[in-house]
Structures are given as C-alpha cells and as structure tokens.
Amino acid sequence: MKKQRIQQVLATDKKAKPQTDQLEFGRVFTDHMFIMDYSSESGWHDARIVPYEPLTIDPAAMIFHYGQSVFEGLKAYITPTGEAQLFRPEKNMERLNRSNDRLCIPRIDESFAIEAIKQLVSIDKEWIPTSEGTSLYIRPFIISTEPYLGVAPSNHYKFIVILSPVGAYYKEGINPVKIAVENKFVRAVKGGTGEAKTGGNYAAGLMAQELVANKGFAQVLWLDGVEKKYIEEVGSMNVFFKINGEVITPALNGSILEGVTRNSVIQLLKSWNVPVTERKISMEEIYDAHKQGSLEEAFGSGTAAVISPIGQLTWDEQDLVINEGKTGKTAKRVYDTLTAIQYGKEEDPFNWISKI
C-alpha cells in the first residue's frame, strides 16, 4: 500500500471549548477531522485533515441500508510536561483491520492511520483537557458510501477520524456500578460479528440496555447466545472476576470483543504475579462463589471507562452485592497504574505509550 501525503485545510473559525466540569462523554467535537476515501479503482486515496463539518452522502449509500461499518475508540492524554500521547494505538489499528476483514471492508495501512491520528491530534492539541480523569477521545470509523441497493460489499468507503474532549464515561467514575445480567436478549453468537467492532453489535444491545437503565443499572452483562449460561462481556466493557485470589476473565471465543484495555489488564496482573486465567465462566459459578464468600471483586475494562468496579450484579432478580459495594484493591491498583502510565505520571515498562 503506497504511502500518501495528508493534505491540511485548517479551520478559520474556531469553536468555543467547553468548561472541564461540563464535559460529557461524546457530546462535543473539535475543530478538525480526518477523511480518506476508497474506491475499488484507486484504493485508499485523498487523505486530508479538514474543518469538522457534516457529511454529504447519497441517500442510497449502502451504510444506511446494510450497516457495513466498523469503528474504534482510543484516547490522547496530556502529560505533566505538556506532551500529548496515545495509549497502544497500534492495537486499535490491528483490531480495526480484523473488523474490516469480517465486514468485507478493504484494509487500511495501520502505520499511516496512526500517523494521520497523530497529525489530527497535534492540530487540535489545545482541545485535550488537562483535569484529572479527562482526555481527548478519538473515534476512527469506516462507512460504506456506494449508492447501491444490492446486497453486496460496497466498492466505495470513507475512513474518518473525529475527536471529542471527554470526562468520565460513567457518572460513577471509579466508584462501583450496578450491572444487570441479561437472560432474554442476545447480542452475538460465535460465527457472527461479536468479535468485530461494528455498529450493528451495539444496536442489537440497545433494547436490553434501555430496559435496565430504567431500573438504575449502568449496563447489562451478556451471557452466551446459545445456552445463555456463560458470561461474555458487559455492553461496553470486558469483564473480570476475582475469586479466591485468582482473576478470571471470559476467554475470547469468537463472540467477545478483544479489548485493548483487557489485554493491558492481563499483562499488568501477570507482571504483578497475580494469578489470571482466561476461560469459560458461568453465571452459576459466580453465584456459587458469591454464596460461599469467595467472590472478592468484579470489574469491567474498556477504553472509555478504563476500569469500572462492579458493586452489584443482579441475576434472576437476585442481587449479588460484591465487596460490600466498594471498589476492590485489585481494581483500584489496576486503574491507578493504567491511568498513571496513560497520563505519563508513571514509567511505562511495557512500551505502550506512543508520543505525538
């Protein structure tokens, strides 16, 4: 794939930036965005950074009708010395290409995509908030744009990157959240698109999410789509359980998203000699461990929330309160270490950080 130059057209009118204490997740966007086009004749071409603005797309564009799209999520952080940096962007681009493969979307040049993201963040660096727990969320995504109503892979695409200054994903922050175990609806099954980061997976989870949100839950915990027995992931996070000193997370099985934060948590725990296992784990096992008093902690992991302790799981109308509803020591240590590395406050022994 031939490297190309990124054209830049800078905004003349800059938008007002929000106050840090008013930041919500994904509501405000910066002055610029990156766009690159694809056609079957020319491949990926016309890479450019332009002012943030609405897109003009044909009503027959295939994205509207067949949902051929993929996306990623990562963040930029400001260090105490004022440098901007990314956390493991190469893992996000690797996963984007795996999602591309599953959705029949042409692969992108991963190193070029990272360079484009760095240029875009550098231009909008002043949008990166500096208060504790805040960051600049980066959303790369690809949509199919060919105007055609036949059911087939598109011949035209747009790869776009937008930026959004964000605060905490959950209003609870690092405080424990309440999660409802989903028994009725199914998000994904092995052989489907569960391991790809595509919009349809999230659309499939909205009904369950809405129903539990009305009852005060932050998210749903999905079980496998066949037996509805084995734990998979939370709506926007992978999930971990600490039982008798061992940390257990569901093994990747074709219907679970391979989280970048998940991978980082596993590496951290192993470096601390904390026993960590990837395997099938049933809700029955979690219930029994809770009943016996051996379920010490539960927490989710993801780019948006980083680490989110789970203070309560509700399953079949039974409330399983975990660690007295308090943040566990392991979750807190993982959160503190990951965020310290991300913000450049602690040494990065894993070579995770990419400077801008």
Rank of each mutant, 00 (worst) to 15 (best):
T12Q: 15
D58S: 15
S135P: 02
N175A: 14
I281P: 08
K75T: 10
F112S: 13
N238Y: 10
F299D: 10
A61T: 10
K329C: 06
G302I: 11
P59L: 08
Q19M: 04
E278G: 09
M283I: 14
K332I: 04
V212P: 01
K215Y: 01
I281E: 03
G73A: 11
T20F: 00
F141Y: 13
V220C: 13
T249I: 07
E317I: 05
F185A: 15
L268E: 04
E132Y: 01
M33R: 03
I266R: 02
F71P: 06
I123F: 03
K178G: 04
L295P: 10
R27K: 14
T327G: 08
D109V: 03
A113H: 05
Q8R: 14
G26R: 00
P153G: 09
H65R: 12
E110V: 01
K228P: 03
L120P: 05
E346C: 04
L86Y: 10
G199A: 14
A196I: 04
G73V: 06
H65E: 12
N155H: 12
H65S: 14
H156K: 15
R107H: 14
I322E: 07
F29Q: 07
G254L: 03
F350T: 03
H156E: 15
T327I: 06
T130W: 01
S154W: 05
D46H: 08
R107M: 05
D101N: 13
V9L: 12
S255K: 02
G26Q: 00
S264F: 01
Y169T: 05
K17G: 02
Y77T: 03
Y66F: 14
I307A: 11
D288A: 12
E347S: 12
W272F: 11
M62G: 12
G73E: 06
T20N: 06
V247P: 08
Q342C: 06
E24G: 11
E347L: 05
T145S: 13
L163Q: 08
G245W: 01
I256V: 08
K171W: 01
Y169S: 06
V226H: 11
S99M: 07
M283S: 02
Y170W: 13
F185V: 06
A11R: 01
K280N: 15
F25G: 02
Q4T: 10
T145P: 13
L10P: 11
K291I: 09
R48I: 12
G302D: 09
F299W: 14
G259P: 09
I266S: 11
A168K: 02
N214L: 15
R139L: 07
E53G: 11
V260W: 02
V9I: 14
A203C: 02
S271L: 00
K242H: 10
P89H: 08
N263H: 13
V234L: 14
V306W: 00
V28A: 02
L268S: 06
T337A: 10
W222D: 09
M36P: 01
N175E: 15
D13W: 01
I105R: 02
R98G: 11
